[in-house]
Amino acid sequence: MTSEALIDYVKGLLGDKTKWADPEAGDNFLTVASEDWKNICQTLATDKKCSLTYLRNFTGTDYPEDDEIELTAHTFSYSEKHGLIIKTRISREAAVCDTLSKIWPAAIWYEREIFDLLGVSFNNHPDLRRILMPEDWVGHPLRKDYKQQETYRGIPTTRPA
C-alpha cells in the first residue's frame, strides 16, 4: 500500500481512537491512548491488509514539561511493503505500560532498554531487567532530570582533576 492509502485504511479501521500528526510534521504517525496501546498494536500487526509484522524500532522520549513519556514504535510490513509509526504517551510518575512482547517478540529487548534508560515498567514482560547499565545502577539516564551517582562500586564517575 502507499503511505496515503495505508493512512486512510487505518483511519477506517480504528475510527476515532487515533490522533494523526500534522501532515507537515515529517513522517506520518498516529498517537493512541495508552489503554488502547496493546490492542491497537495487536490489530495493526494481525490485520491482513496492514500486516505490520515487523517491529523495526521501539523507543521512548521524556517530556518533563508535559509530565509524560512518549513511546514510539516503528513498524514495517515486508509483505505489503509499507511502514507505520505508532505513538502513545504515559504518565511520567507511574510510568507503566502494557508489553508488546506477545505481539512482536523483538519488543522484549527494546522494552528492557526503555525500562533501563527511562524507567518505564511493562506489564507482563517476561524478563524485565536492565540491559545497558549494570543491575545495581541507580536512576534512569535518559530522564531529563537524571543526576548521575558520584561513584559506582567505588569507581568515581567523574575523572578526578
Partner: peptide, 19 residues
C-alpha cells in the same frame, strides 16, 4: 585513558586507571 570522547556519557568509565 580518560573516557575519551564518551567521557560525558552516563555509561562509560572515565579511564581504566579508576579500577
Amino acid at each position: 585513558n580518560t573516557g575519551g570522547l564518551f567521557q560525558e556519557s552516563y555509561a562509560v568509565v572515565n579511564g581504566g586507571d579508576l579500577f
